[in-house]
Write a protein that binds this DNA or RNA. Structure first.
Lengths: 152, 152
DNA sequence: TATAAAGAGTACTATAATGGTACCCTATCC
DNA sequence: GGATAGGGTACCATTATAGTACTCTTTATA
């Protein structure tokens, strides 16, 4: 199965937790306890999320972390990108390794992967932390297509 | 990065190659040579694709593999599902482990993952082998949304 | 009908990616 | 200036993935 890593999963849990009280400053320990992820792992994640500009941090005695933006301004692409790097199912078309595809013949493939990657990206971009706090109402809408006729 | 495995990538290459001459019977060796993937790996993949009902096989001296359906009837979900199992970025919501989520509090998360997984699924379902032979024309369309406003 | 060619099945090894931990450094409050 | 909290980084462990090897079965044809 194509899946996001455990750490990313934790990351989402952490952010969702912090979004419950969006203006509050949380210490790493508080977060660790609340989410049930060991402290060392939690701190590692928090640091990464700061790098990704999803959290702000305050050092020193009364330090801690807090959301860098409003929960409805933080989407799942942001989180996934921060924790796993650029979203995309293949390197092909991620503009990471633009040139090293020696199969120029089969480059219809590349264009199509770009389509797919873009769609995945958009799907993730449509769900925000704010929504993660509430049951989803609207399914993400794709145009009526073959999709629904296919074997699942 | 969230990505599909190398093997899946090879698998797509293999099928795309076979789709160039969709009615023909290919031996594993032919495929291996054409695609540039070592024979043992190629055969392993071909076997898996037969299990996934994407290929039919013929045993014996004049044996080989051929597409089980027309290229426009084989989509990327089919391939990915055959080679990596059910599509979805988290177990949560894949109906694999329905009950074991002890965080019933945070189940807004589950619903939202289902939305995302569905979107990814649909994106993959919209691209067929037939299209992989040609440069893509139509980007997969998602409704206008926040997506385009977000940092990429 | 025996032989060779080709796939089926499965078990195993190696490699790489991920997950998780530990340690030392720096900032800030009181 | 000491206690508390985050910053940075390097390291080890675990697991998943990739890749290989080997034996068995089927089938065309000489």
């Amino acid at each position: 199965m194509i899946r996001i890593g455990k750490l990313t999963d934790y990351g989402i849990l952490i952010l969702t937790h912090m979004a419950q009280d969006e203006a509050r400053l949380f210490t790493a320990q508080e977060v660790s306890l609340a989410v049930g992820v060991p402290l060392p792992t939690t701190t590692k994640l928090l640091k990464t999320l700061v790098h990704g500009n999803l959290l702000d941090s305050q050092r020193g005695t009364k330090g801690g972390y807090l959301l860098a933006r409003r929960p409805d301004q933080i989407s799942m692409v942001d989180v996934v990108t921060a924790l796993e790097g650029p979203v995309g199912l293949t390197d092909c078309g991620t503009a990471q390794h633009p040139g090293d595809c020696r199969r120029s013949t089969s480059c219809a493939i590349k264009t199509n992967w770009q389509r797919i990657n873009q769609a995945v990206h958009d799907a993730l971009a449509q769900v925000t932390l704010a929504e993660m706090r509430l049951p989803a109402v609207h399914p993400i809408h794709l145009p009526a297509s073959r999709a629904n006729l296919q074997r699942v």
